[in-house]
Design a protein around this nucleic acid. Sequence first.
DNA 1: GCTGAAAGCACCATGGG
DNA 2: CCCATGGTGCTTTCAGC
Lengths: 161, 161
Amino acid sequence: MALDSYDRAILKALQRDGRITKAGLAERVNLTPSPVWERLKRLEASGVIAGYAARLSLKKLAPVTTVMVEVVLKQHRAADFERFESRIRATPEVIDCQATGGGIDYVMKVVVRDIDAYQRLMDDLLESGLQIERYYSYVVTKSVKDNAELPLDALLGGDTA
Amino acid sequence: MALDSYDRAILKALQRDGRITKAGLAERVNLTPSPVWERLKRLEASGVIAGYAARLSLKKLAPVTTVMVEVVLKQHRAADFERFESRIRATPEVIDCQATGGGIDYVMKVVVRDIDAYQRLMDDLLESGLQIERYYSYVVTKSVKDNAELPLDALLGGDTA
DNA sequence: GCTGAAAGCACCATGGG
DNA sequence: CCCATGGTGCTTTCAGC
């Protein structure tokens, strides 16, 4: 599974506009709809395109508070990680959670209505036997970039032609 | 601009599948395509639906390293923030950047090919007169949750009927 | 604001270069 | 691996309620 420049152009276009029509894509990448359709089928089947999603902006509707959270667990056995991650996956307010090395075990992005809701959520997590040793909260004051598109050119390099 | 339960059902469905057809949406929310189309037009025009994007998974194709980075600036004048944020917006490898209070100025998610590329990127930023006092790097070892859907129910509450 | 129908268009499959 | 064409179903509009 390798990407040529057509595939890369298709992925770029789909990151910007996930609902572009196949005909529109074809025009954008200088192909006819048929090969675009073939390539799309391949990209979706292989999992390179994992899916499509609407990008929502809720701050116009309701109060939204984002908090970046760093978590350190008390113990680092496989079962401790698994318990924590399982709970995080079941917590919809945590919309992003990356396990890391280097002093911090997890960096998470939490989206709640307000700070009260955040405190309740963290209290729940602390009382759930997750063995959280400590956590650091950084309330977001401004979103400079929010889940922007992946840097395909930098990641895939100038090759792959 | 308020959301009723139909709008919320539409948004939920579109977060899971951004390419669902209007007919499919209509069936999913128990309406006919016409009102769904009206509501979609309203949601898109109001900016609640900011756009649509393909969700990509590149790790099958090429090496991808994610690093969570915390940045502290030397000085905290408006011009210092603006200079930094402007540079970050122009740096495609930084796919997420939230300004925060509380000891750390920014929490970023950086996606690069490997650690070498990360070091080059950070060296560039350090040499760019951005007044970075210090930064902490946390290399991601496992993605527990990656930009999951927004918790509409928690954010909008049980009301809004 | 929803329903239903009708014209226009996108999707996807097939056949051919 | 790309292009061209056609049947099917979706999209969008517009009356009517």
